[in-house]
Computed example of a mutant assay.
Amino acid sequence: MCGFVSMVGMGFGCFVGFIRRGGFGDALLDFMYSLRNYFDVFMHRLGLFDLTMEKGSGLIKELLSRSRFNEPFFMLINIMEAHSPYLPSDLGDDLYNSVIADWILNRGVDVDVVNALRLRYGLHAGFAVERAIEIVHDLSRYLDNTLFIVTSDHGELLGDGGLGHGYFLRNGLLRVPFWVRWPGWFRVPRQLDRS
């Protein structure tokens, strides 16, 4: 877990902890991920890489391409590409959060910012779907013996009934993708219509 935390800037403390416990391989991997994160932030600030679009699914694809699973396994992959921040100029989500705060406090909303967020959200959601398909494809050698479930924890409101996502029920939050693929050998039970 510590190694993955380092990707968001906690690298040195984890690195030292791994060394103290004798985990030199983990320490080296942690150090490499930390360097990569700093490089990605640097490239983002130069405008050469959009860190708001690529939020870790590329790393997941890399790890899966090097992994082989011989025993039964459970895997949960959380693709964050459809989550904020959306705007390349708003890496810390400050603008996004202030627009939501203004809406909550009924202080009006900057329509131009909401429109920019709406446009970028569509791009992010499309990218997340592409990455999910690529990841399922990368795991395709396990398809015949695997139950795959692809879904989302929530949608995002961008002026369509509110802003952001919170403790309220709206279509834009509830209507999310849901795809199930049963193992090839499993006979899917049919539900009876009891109406």
Rank of each mutant, 00 (worst) to 15 (best):
V109W: 02
S67C: 08
L157K: 08
L51H: 08
G126I: 00
L28D: 11
V8G: 10
L163Q: 12
W182C: 06
G47R: 01
W103N: 04
L119Q: 11
T52R: 07
M43Q: 11
D160W: 05
R181T: 10
Y142I: 01
G11K: 01
S65N: 03
D30T: 15
Q191M: 13
H83Q: 03
K55H: 12
F168K: 10
R120W: 03
Y38Q: 12
L105D: 12
T151N: 00
A101C: 09
R181W: 04
G161V: 07
M10P: 08
H165D: 09
L28M: 15
D110Y: 04
F127E: 05
D26M: 13
G56S: 02
Y96D: 04
R187A: 08
L139G: 09
H165W: 03
L119R: 13
V16M: 10
V114D: 00
L63N: 08
H154K: 11
S34P: 09
V16T: 13
F69T: 02
R141H: 12
H83D: 01
L123V: 07
H165V: 12
S89F: 06
V114W: 00
S152M: 07
V113Y: 00
G172T: 08
P85S: 05
F69S: 00
L158Y: 09
M80Q: 14
M32Y: 12
A27D: 13
I19N: 02
G172P: 10
A27I: 13
A125T: 14
L48G: 10
I104M: 03
V111A: 09
F73C: 07
E81T: 04
V5N: 14
I133E: 12
G13W: 07
G166V: 03
D110A: 09
G13D: 12
R36S: 14
G155I: 01
G58N: 03
P88S: 15
